[in-house]
Amino acid sequence: MTEPAHAPAPTPYSSAASGRATHYPLLGTPHISLSGTVDQAMYASFREQLAKAPREGPLVVSLSTLGGDPEVARLMGDELRLMRDYTGREMLFLGKVAVYSAGATFMASFPVDKRFLTRGTRLMLHERIIDKTIQVSGPLKSCVATLKATLHEIEESVRIEEEGFRAIVVGSRVSFEEVCQRAPSNWYIDALQARDLGLVLDVI
């Protein structure tokens, strides 16, 4: 008589191992679904969907993006923060497939215990990039002013970048120093690693 076959061990992304979706039923139907480049078009879609979303109860926002304008990401995050601060409303973030660059900036506006990723999703953290040509021409004092203005722009961008890095790691097991060390070479983090590092609450 042959022994009964044993069921195969679940893989990290199998439904048996990651059947947590039933623990978070709200995540199955996000109120706001954003995808594509983080830009003014995404912001317009965000505002339109937010206006149509229920006025009470938890609000779920899903995002899939390869990146875009970090200031638009900060703007959307700040609008949700203000709503949360003034109403006490719970807001949940669900990252899908790719949450790169400006997408991670947007995710940082949610506390770590309100962040979720779908299995197989990747985060990517990196430094801000500038692509600017400076032409120095004219009176010397005006040239100095032009160079100083560019330097101040870079310095302020670095400060904003560091604010974002601190926001994304607060409450996690990742230090600010580690992000600063790894971001210059584009730090890719898969969903399970993000959960283990405490950057998100769970993977579904």
Rank of each mutant, 00 (worst) to 15 (best):
M1Y: 07
M1S: 15
M1A: 15
T2N: 11
A7K: 13
A7F: 08
A9F: 06
A9G: 06
T11Q: 07
T11A: 13
S15A: 12
S18C: 11
S18W: 04
S18K: 13
G19V: 10
A21C: 00
I32Y: 03
S33T: 09
S33Q: 08
S35Y: 05
V38Y: 12
Y43H: 15
A44C: 05
R47H: 04
L50S: 01
L50T: 00
A53M: 08
G57Y: 10
L59F: 05
S62W: 03
S64P: 00
S64L: 04
G67K: 05
D69L: 04
E71L: 10
E71S: 11
D78I: 00
L80Y: 03
R81N: 09
L82T: 12
M83G: 02
T87D: 03
R89C: 10
E90A: 13
E90T: 14
F93Y: 15
F93K: 03
F93E: 02
V97H: 12
V99C: 10
V99T: 05
V99F: 06
S101N: 09
S101W: 03
A102S: 15
T105G: 08
F106M: 14
S109P: 02
F110C: 06
D113S: 01
F116G: 02
L123W: 01
E127N: 15
R128Y: 15
G138V: 02
L140V: 15
K141G: 10
A145I: 12
L147M: 13
A149G: 09
S157Y: 07
V158S: 10
V158G: 02
R159C: 09
E162T: 08
E163P: 00
R166N: 07
G171D: 08
S172E: 08
V174Y: 06
S175Q: 01
F176S: 01
E177R: 00
V179W: 01
Q181F: 06
P184Q: 02
Y188S: 05
I189T: 11
D190S: 08
L192M: 11
R195V: 04
L197K: 09
D202Y: 01
D202A: 11
D202C: 02
